[in-house]
Simulated scan of single mutants.
Amino acid sequence: MRGNMRDEWFDVVVVGGGAAGLAGALTLARARRSVLVIDSGSPRNAPAAHVHGYLGHDGASPAELLARGRAEVAGYGGEVRPGAAVAADRLPGGEFLVHCADGRAVRAGRLLVATGLVDELPGVPGLGARWGRDVLHCPYCHGWEVRDLPLAVLATGPLSVHQAQLWRQWSERVTLLSHTWQLAGEERELLAARGIEVVEGEVTGLVVAHGGGDEGGDGGDEVDGDDGWLAGVTLAGGGTVECRALVVAPRFTARAGVLTSLGLPLTTLERDGHAIGTCVDADPATGATALPGVWVAGNVGDPMQQVAGAAAQGVRVAAAVNADLVEEETRLALRAHRRS
């Protein structure tokens, strides 16, 4: 076995301290289960200034929301511990030994893995530095903040036309940058019908301006900052296209090291024959994986979940985990009762 086996044992170890993991841990702690959350401290939405669309928490920062969640879990006796879980072993008795990067290991009766995903951005210089503020993906998370501003969509795959049509709801000034994607004639007609301009040519970089970023639009609540504001993109031919936000389609790559170490495979997500990411298959209702005793919640199993949906799924999956433990405890109690 890897690492040093610890004497610590928990009913459930939750791997991942984001919205899904903490919501699951809270539910399990309230169910009087011993719960440990191993939190790497790297939530997917960390670059964003605020969380939106989460009823009762709209406008909270991701850090603030998670701090509240950790305190709530601790208030019911759960433990949240910083660390990176890197692998797990299934022990002969059906329990699990979870290994952390620092060499520690802890035993668990059940695993709830909520490690999320990594957004792999297109290969345009400068995207990562502005990701989550004016380089965006989800209009439901950020559309209101850039409403009525000039927006550009970077075409890199089959989702790009859909993105352009969707973001058109928030602004009349949407441009599709063909970049590396070949648009079909019907797609061009659909874009033209909504007044979405198509600009040909590969995008080579971003234009970042400094100083006053207000150009008279009603939007832009969160797109200005100390490191300037997005003013446009540059093209391979030497031209520029104005935009105050750039919409991209990242590749959704599941953080699944603990799951794959247990033999659970990654599934490739496809849209129109084009790979858009990976996830780990699980029952959509309960989060149960193909390996007994292991559940998933949040983006590691469903890349399309937003914060509120991930939290709701964490609660639902935790209830399934607790029901499984109750079933096992009842079975053992019946066996003991019959022997007495």
Rank of each mutant, 00 (worst) to 15 (best):
G263F: 08
H99C: 15
E329G: 11
L36M: 06
G263M: 06
S340N: 12
A129T: 05
G123R: 15
L269F: 11
M5L: 15
L166Q: 00
G94H: 01
A318E: 04
R251Y: 12
R194W: 09
R147E: 01
A46Q: 13
P139C: 00
V15H: 08
A84F: 15
M5W: 13
L266N: 10
I38L: 12
L191C: 04
L235M: 09
A249S: 15
N45Y: 02
T240R: 13
V199H: 00
E120G: 11
V199W: 01
T204K: 02
V12E: 02
A312S: 13
Q169H: 14
L259S: 02
H142Y: 06
V12A: 06
A285R: 12
L121S: 01
G216M: 06
V203I: 07
Y54D: 05
L97E: 12
G239Y: 04
G93D: 15
A101I: 14
E242Q: 12
P92S: 14
T260N: 10
V73Q: 08
A256E: 09
G75P: 08
F252H: 14
R338V: 13
E215M: 11
Q313M: 11
L259G: 05
G78F: 05
R81I: 07
G257L: 13
E329P: 04
L127H: 05
L22T: 04
G185K: 02
N299D: 07
H162M: 09
V321S: 02
M1G: 15
M1Y: 12
V35P: 01
A88N: 00
F96A: 01
A275I: 11
F96Y: 00
A282Y: 07
V118D: 14
L112I: 10
H274M: 01
D58F: 10
E187F: 03
L97R: 15
H99T: 15
R107G: 14
A25L: 07
C279H: 14
P125W: 11
A193V: 09
T204L: 03
E197P: 00
V199A: 01
V208M: 09
P150H: 07
A71H: 11
R271I: 14
G216Y: 05
V258W: 04
L151R: 03
R194C: 12
L55H: 10
W229G: 04
L127W: 03
P150T: 10
L264A: 10
R339G: 11
D283H: 03
G277M: 02
W229K: 03
R104K: 14
G219P: 04
G16P: 08
A20G: 02
G238S: 07
G83E: 08
E200G: 08
G217E: 14
W295I: 10
L66N: 10
F10I: 11
E72K: 05
E200C: 03
H210Y: 11
A152F: 01
H142A: 06
P139G: 06
G217H: 14
L190A: 15
V80W: 06
D39Y: 08
A184M: 13
G24V: 00
R147K: 02
D214I: 05
G195N: 01
D281A: 15
D227S: 13
S34W: 04
A333V: 09
A256D: 12
G16E: 06
E120K: 13
L149A: 03
I38K: 05
G56I: 04
V51Q: 09
R331K: 13
G301I: 08
C243Y: 00
T253C: 15
R33N: 01
A101Y: 05
Q169P: 02
T260W: 03
